[in-house]
Amino acid sequence: MVTLVLFIAFAIIALVGALGVVISRNPVHSALWLVATLLSMAGFFILEGAYLVSAVQVIVYASAIVVLFLFVIMLLGVDREESLTDPLKVQRPVALMLGLVVFALLIGLMGNHWATGAQSATAALESGDGGNVERVAREIFTTYLWPFELTSALLVVAVVGGVALARRSRRAEAASEVAQ
């Protein structure tokens, strides 16, 4: 019963938040609605016993990533309202139709039997020693060691790419001064 009430509450917050992201005129409001959805996701994860994922969701997603969004919005000063009546009037109903069709297809295709897969033989949720954190760690450092190592390359990409894009290059500035 508690689960049911919590699920419905989180579901309402998540859906309202998602709609809020799409409908808000002001990007700052969109970002705040996004926080609502992300936090309710963390709630779902707790309901489903994924405690570590839930904590990481709050720490990384709901705080770090959203703060980065807000930071950029404020830095650029683009928090002004955007008119939602834009030149592409035809696009909106088409997009809505498309979204409904995708949703209906997903639901229709899958019917009542979504999870048709095998029950896990090696990495069961409740077996083994240690809590959720230890078991997730064991999976990451054994089965998923290669993707884990690959993420290091991803972080290097993020650093180098961010620097390359956002840095003011002395060479480029000198060149554009010459051009002017």
Binding site: E48, G117, S120, A123, L125, V136, Y144
Partner: peptide, 11 residues
């Protein structure tokens, strides 16, 4: 991950 009783989904 919960329905299949498998940690891979959480990872």
């Amino acid at each position: 991950s919960k329905t299949l009783n498998d940690l891979s989904g959480q990872v």
